[in-house]
Amino acid sequence: MSTQDSTDSSRDATSTDDVRGGTAQRMEIETNGPPPPQLPRVKVRSVPRARVLGLHVLLGVLLLLTLLPIAWLVTGALKLQEDLFAYTFLPEGWRIDRLTFSNIFRLFEEIPFFRVAANSMFVAGATVLIQLFFSSLGGFALAKYEFRGKRPIMILMLMTMMIPAQVMLAPLYQMIHHMGLMDSLAGLIVPSVVSVFGMFLFRQSMMQIPDELLQAGRIDGCSELGLYWNIVMPVSRPMIGAFCLIAFMGNWNSFLWPQIVLHTSDRFTLPIALTQQVGLYEQDYGVLLAGTLLSIVPVVILFLLLQREFISGLTAGAVKG
């Protein structure tokens, strides 16, 4: 990515006329191999500057449209009740001094926010950690060992990936009921300890670990479990980051299952508390927006930390497989 960016900027600095020259330059930087075979020189229409500018303007407008609701959310959460109706974004003349935390304080009065946020954090954290352990260990076995039953396992799991999970709601509800886990945070964690997606993600990335590395570990007297812990997991760190973020985001936004399982308000997770207790009935939109804003902060922080890994993890399955 960085090499591409630098190519772009250097290209722009020189001229935007010769498109083929840019390609040759890119090839050299990216491959480091023998120079690409010379293609016959073709006359390429030059790209007018106006069109380049137009593309940027178009993208800028689209980006603005994308970011508008987010800006509206942030300002709405921090505006006075009367300003929320009077001004679309900031109060007239960018009166930043009219912004307030009053919505946030009202939110804290309406729901036990820190309790609820801690519930969400605990459920998402525990689920992701267990999923990470199970699916990375399983993915390692399926990537690096040959054993009986490997193929049936893979086929079974590929098939279940295409089945909408909602079909399992009724049986899971019965199971959780019989296990006595209704209305408990454990009832949210227990049924979601398996991540088939995670298993495939780890299998795919661990297949690229060279066998020689593992063999060298064995010669040094490392046990198989020691290989997993001392070699495979450290090498897979980017994929671990990607998986944790993707799984955490999914869990943080989990709504249907918690809605079914939880009944007591001090066990609610953020989505349930916000939608059931703050609600739209009272028309107190400022509080609702404040709650939404606070709820997305952890995900945004995690994303900023793990951004690079996230994109590669997301597209790993799609591009290579």
Binding site: L63, G76, I296
Partner: peptide
């Protein structure tokens, strides 16, 4: 290749996904 700041645009267009389905639903109700 003519676009400058592609990483910036990509992040910007991707950003709604960070809010997540539930919170987007709440936001768009408003």
């Amino acid at each position: 290749r003519l676009i400058l700041g592609r990483a910036f645009f990509r992040l910007g267009f991707f950003s709604p996904h960070l809010l997540g389905m539930v919170f987007v639903a709440i936001l768009f109700a408003v």
